[in-house]
Nucleic acid binder design. Structure first.
Lengths: 210, 210
DNA sequence: ATTATATTGTTGCTTTTGCAACTATTGTAT
DNA sequence: ATACAATAGTTGCAAAAGCAACAATATAAT
């Protein structure tokens, strides 16, 4: 769900000889990393998709966040809060860049260009994360499923300069993102259709109001 | 609600002669700034309290976020999303530090120490914001008021190394923060008490489970 | 001291949401 | 081609949450 700052520019130039930065590949269902309050790990998803998940005492899986290409994640963004251990699981073949934030801050011995660029871009990278999180909070704080859906559609509509939007992911995921029951969300979508507020055809949605 | 990184250390040394950084004072109800998609404004609340609010088409006021001492805010954290203009209103006498992110990135002509320190601390400052937002999202995504309350209490409990916590703000604000109806939240607190899960005396709460 | 304002606490009623349990459809793997 | 898995779509029912409208305190303002 990342949308704003484009880290691709300098990530494409990746060539760091120092040991501070690592790139690893993962296949479907592999655990990329865990959050257990041990280090300031900072990760960038270079390719693929991954989920941040929690398993509660009953073994129920909750997807807290979903990461796509160029999204950043890692324990440094998610300190303590509860006792639960969190996992980042690869949804498909993925490539991930790892480093420890405290290591990268200090000057690189081999003074590689990548290292330098990464550090100078860190504020923007993290800012784009803040914007994404604020967007989600704005939606999560809406009091009804209807308002959450309309708020979400409005954001996509403004971004695409169009009243018609196409969801690039499953409705199951959308329900997770908005933190509502999927069947209740489907029902509300139907009501929005019946009320003439949206037009829906599969994952193509058109806003009819205003 | 800021908790992590302490920007006070270098903010106390504030003495910037360059024009890039400004400090202004505000009294109760004054508008500190607005978010209208115009510039990368970055603010740090040095003293007081402030609310980020939205007025919808009916004039209803929604408090999106509440800022305390050392919290950061500004349009740079909150790009577009909807057409609504957002306001940051001072809740009492407040002191705010302003700068435009793009200006501060470049070297300061007068090469003042503060300027330099600010830039080198930006990643940490923004990271602490990310952690706060992730914490709130974790609570907002919980499906029931009970889970939201218990999640919130648990976080405070872990932070204070104590099963007994004291809320430093109103229950009205807590309901806003968790984005639930206040009266429904009060009812749920009563049920938690009746079920022997918490003990409550005013704003002092003790967790009894485990 | 008295008024005004904000916060807390409570309750009946209504609406919304979640849950469970399906079927239908689409996509993927062998 | 067929089986398996994931996604989409639907519905009845029960539980949870929102809304409205209060009274009771507590805090701040004049």
């Amino acid at each position: 769900m990342s949308i704003n700052f484009n880290i691709e520019n300098f990530i494409n130039d990746f060539s760091c000889s120092c040991s501070k930065v690592q790139v690893k590949n993962f296949s479907k269902s592999e655990v990329i990393t865990t959050y257990i309050q041990k280090r300031n790990q900072f990760c960038i998803l270079l390719e693929g998709h991954a989920d941040l998940v929690r398993y509660d005492y009953n073994g129920n899986k909750t997807i807290i966040e979903r990461f796509s290409k160029n999204d950043v994640f890692g324990e440094i963004f998610y300190t303590i809060s509860t006792n639960n251990e969190l996992f980042v699981e690869s949804c498909e073949n993925s490539k991930v860049l790892f480093f420890i934030y405290d290591d990268i801050k200090s000057k690189c011995k081999s003074s590689c260009k990548f290292h330098e660029t990464l550090v100078s871009n860190l504020p923007e990278i993290i800012l784009s994360k803040v914007i994404d999180l604020n967007t989600r909070i704005e939606l999560l704080t809406k009091r009804s499923i209807r308002d959450k859906l309309l708020g979400y559609f409005e954001i996509l509509s403004i971004r695409n300069f169009s009243k018609t939007i196409t969801l690039s992911f499953s409705l199951t995921y959308l329900a997770d993102y908005l933190s509502v029951d999927r069947s209740a969300m489907m029902r509300e979508m139907k009501l929005l259709k019946d009320d003439g507020i949206i037009k829906k055809n599969g994952n193509k949605i058109t806003l009819l109001y205003k």
